[in-house]
Amino acid sequence: MKSIKKTVLALIVPFGIIVAWYLAVKYGHTPEGILPSMEKVWKAFKTNIENGQLTNDVLVSLSRVVKGYFVAAILGIVAGSVIGMSKTAKDLFLPIITVIRQIPIIAWIPLIILWCGIGEESKVVIIVLAAFFPILVNTENGIEKTPEGMLEVARLYKLNPWKTFIKVYLPHALPHMLVGLRLGLGVAWMAVVASELIAASSGIGYRMSDARSLMMADVVIVCMLVVGIIGVVMDKLIGVIFGMFTPWEKLKKA
């Protein structure tokens, strides 16, 4: 019963938007190039799927995300672990990291274009930059919060530093790390779209900016919906996959 109520409540606002949209098109006399009708958006979706363009754009963007995210994950986990375990490393890096994090990712794009051009690298670099910080900060947090008592157990059984990391620090940090990886994937997806909007010749973001210049609001809306849906799907997917890595976490809440 509760879940039915939840679903109904979740659908009320989207339904309201659809109704408002419908009414605005029917009675608002807005030009097609500004607010297209729902049928027009649906048609644009169908044509773009059929001619393969949309799928292609999405794949280009996703492949950029995969590359950048992979690098960010490795860098973020390694850096977060080091900073989490070493007080010196923490005092050395964390203050500056905190400052750099305040710069929105969009604000990096001009500089990165200057440095890396508008090719593939600049997009990947932007994604790395976007995903790196949430992964780093959460990993660091999880490592640092490892209870002294558990480390004492590792010392009692004379685990060497590497074993201590693998058997105590890492599993303790894993749930936090996964939160960071999940947040990181979200911002990576947003960052790729943003960077493609500003400077690119392919990808879903580029398609949007291209359609805007052609006054094709229907295609813009299709792309936006696709971006949103892919974001949600990726988030849910990674949540489920990561849940399988930490079976003990579920028990805690029960």
Binding site: G149, E152, V153, L156, Y157, K158, K167, K252
Partner: peptide
Amino acid sequence: GPGPKCGMVFQDHRLLPWLKIKDNVGFG
């Protein structure tokens, strides 16, 4: 420092939550 021949049972059990009981018991 600690040695393998000297065991200790702590006041709080200090089992590692991510290890199954058999792996906790076999930790050392």
